[in-house]
Amino acid sequence: MNAAGLRHERRLLLRRLALSAPAMATLAVFLLVPLGIMLLVSFLQPGDYGGVKWGEYSLEAYVNFLYERDLDDSLVFNTDYLQIFQRSFWLSVLTTAGCLLVGFPTALYLALQSERRRNLLLLLVTVPFWTNLLVRVYAWILLLRNGGLVDSGLEALGLVHGGDLNVLYTDVAVVIGLLYTFLPFMVLPIYTSLEKLDWRLVEAAYDLGATRRQALRRIIVPLAMPGIAAGTILVFIPSLGNYIIPELLGGGKALMIGNLIQLQFGTAHNWPLGAALSFALLAFVLLAMLVYSLRFKGAAAGGHP
């Protein structure tokens, strides 16, 4: 390669760097720097009333995650935080499964409509985002509470007799709230992959004698897999760290990871533990993603299984 060509190459490289610089800088400033600070905080001693003691390093926060000091100062295995993680995990799994169950047929229905109707319906899916989440969660409190719309509606239909519904301030209410909040995040990615679907493949399946169920299972679902994978991730991860819904609909009786972390930065005055819990959550999410990507290898990349 001659000198001119080399210079040209270098100029191209520089231009590419310059073009990607804003994105890289944004990532560095808004993702890596805060993460770095949190990582540092998690290895420091907590300050007496919030904050940290800079320069005093300690592994205490990570030890505290699994162990507590007994009366005689010996370390005892302590599952409190693990139990909170486990509860968050199962509630998020339930939420994700529920979203998939409701979201997939919705997305399929959307994809089968005429273009005009489709746009209208898509707009309707996004309508909830037009108002504040807090307002909508409060609306759920009114719906779910004893003597609320759901309770009196079921009573009027004769489905339940007497007594209270007693759903509000339970884990059931939390899952309903999470499902409601994150449903659009499941519908939209699945819709996106179904919209691009080549329906001639489905016709071909019919021609080859497939039943409706077989066509759905062997053609449509596999082709929608990238959307399902994306939707699952978009629902599962924010559910795991959600803070406001368990607080309001769960009646504050049981913590989820988000509430636990908030507590450490608030009244518990233990920032390092809060930071360490955040990293435990991050590790947990990465692990779940890894398992998921191994299990559904190729699907997330858009390939056929």
């Binding site: 007496d48 009333y49 909170i84 507590l263 005055h269």
Partner: peptide, 17 residues
């Protein structure tokens, strides 16, 4: 004291785990 407050948050976590 921070020690007393740490006990409080321990109780709170146990109450809500």
């Amino acid at each position: 004291s921070p020690k007393a407050l740490a006990l409080r948050s321990k109780v709170w976590t146990k109450l809500k785990k």
